[in-house]
Design a protein around this nucleic acid. Sequence first.
RNA 1: GGCCCUAUCGUCUAACGGUUUAGGACGCAGCCCUCUCAAGGCUGAAAUACGGGUUCGAUUCCCGUUAGGGCUACCA
Length: 486
Amino acid sequence: MNVTNPYSVRVRFAPSPTGYLHVGGLRTALYNYLFAKHNGGKFLLRIEDTDQSRKVEGAVENLIATLDWAGVHYDEGPNRDGGHGPYVQSQRLDLYHKYARQLVEQGNAYYCFCTPERLEEVRKKQQAQKLSPKYDGHCRFIPAEEAKRRRESGEMSVVRMKIPDGGETAFEDIIRGRVTIANSILDDQVILKSDGFPTYHLAVVVDDHLMEISHIIRGEEWLPSTPKHVLLYRYFGWDMPQFAHLPLLLNPDKSKLSKRQGDVAVEDYRAKGYFKEALVNFVAFLGWNPGDEREVFTMDELVKEFSLERVGKAGAVFNIEKLDWFQFQHLQKKTDNEMLTLLKGQLKSSGISNTFQDSYLLGVIGAMRERATFVRDFVEKSPYFFTPPLEYDAAVVKKRWKPDSSAKLTKLSEEFSMLSNPTKEDFEAALQRTAEALKIGNGELIHPLRLAVSGLGAGPGLYDILFILGKDETIKRIKTAIEKIQ
RNA sequence: GGCCCUAUCGUCUAACGGUUUAGGACGCAGCCCUCUCAAGGCUGAAAUACGGGUUCGAUUCCCGUUAGGGCUACCA
């Protein structure tokens, strides 16, 4: 066992490049990464592209870019050699052939010449008899000489591993404890396909061994086939890595998280404006917790706290509301300077020409921050900071704009015009003076004024808005509003 | 169908036999704050699937039932 030494921790994320990075994949990658970093080990990325029919152009690049965006960086993998490459399975074919041959020679595997048609027939028969579909061992006892002859004559074949006739195979799972499966229900699994590519089962065992993987941390969907892998390790006489099968991520209806019930691609969430910090924090908490009541974590903090012992066994529903809360929390944690950069980027992508001073933008950030979950909220919830209101919210006009509002605002506007370089407090004092002079409550000025300068009925404190907008712009907007409303 | 895994508030979860009137968070409702909307504070509704054991004592251990999920390919 090469597992108990914390300095020899080597784990991997081994996706198949079928398009995009699934959020479940992100969590698996993240847990591997956190475990590696927490233990001072290495995190590898290995591309499992042994199914040629599922190959998607650009998928690998996309996968790597997305992991990189999320901050899940690999120590070894494609374009980052660590002496255990290549890290792409389609470039390791000779290795799989070699080990498949070894298994055949040892008598732990055999060539099978059954056609897909025959296999289909057998399967149908078994299903008709309500038996579980399983290879019937038709080619299991073909003599080596005959197999050799048939292969040399060009007959198509695959290699199947031999499952012991009786007994059971068990292994220890860090998350689930001891798992046992009767050999009788295991299939003589194909390990080398007729196209010369290995199946997952052979490739994963060979690679994990050659790459000196210490812990296999992967999704629960692999649990039932793990005994086959255990058997292969035994056939080869290799040390067994430790297994940790993660609970699945679920749809709101508790089925395995999938498309159709919402977005599953990490890039979808990125495109929607979620911070990597939020997505990573959220996904980390789907199946793991630090054992106390803290919830908002940075990547570094996660690395510090993470342990497989605190990973749960039950599937977790991917709950968007909670994600949004994490997003809000992480937005609040950003520094003003970070927000400034983000806001400038948002203005650009929103097509708003940035003619604003940094100090102005910083003012907007201060006023809007706790009202924003996404960066785009600054533009969407308070467009009036960037463009004068083009229209006025009808419901607010109805509620707040009285027949005499124009006259009152005109008076207020006059009061404002006497101010020089007004502070927030100056605006407030001026408004109070006007209200007193008019013998009305502040509210009769505040509400119509908010509507006049913002076009909306909700937002930051009015005096904050006025101060940010400035005296001239405020007066201008009051004038425009008086003309446009009614 | 067979096999495997799982089971605490609607959701994410804490509890590693007794400190529990089962704690926190999201969401929800109410109140406070208040120029609005947020934020914040306070309060509230809300869970150990069911049935048997083991034990002086079970959310916690065992068995069964039920439910859910996964797997059952020359896919991963």
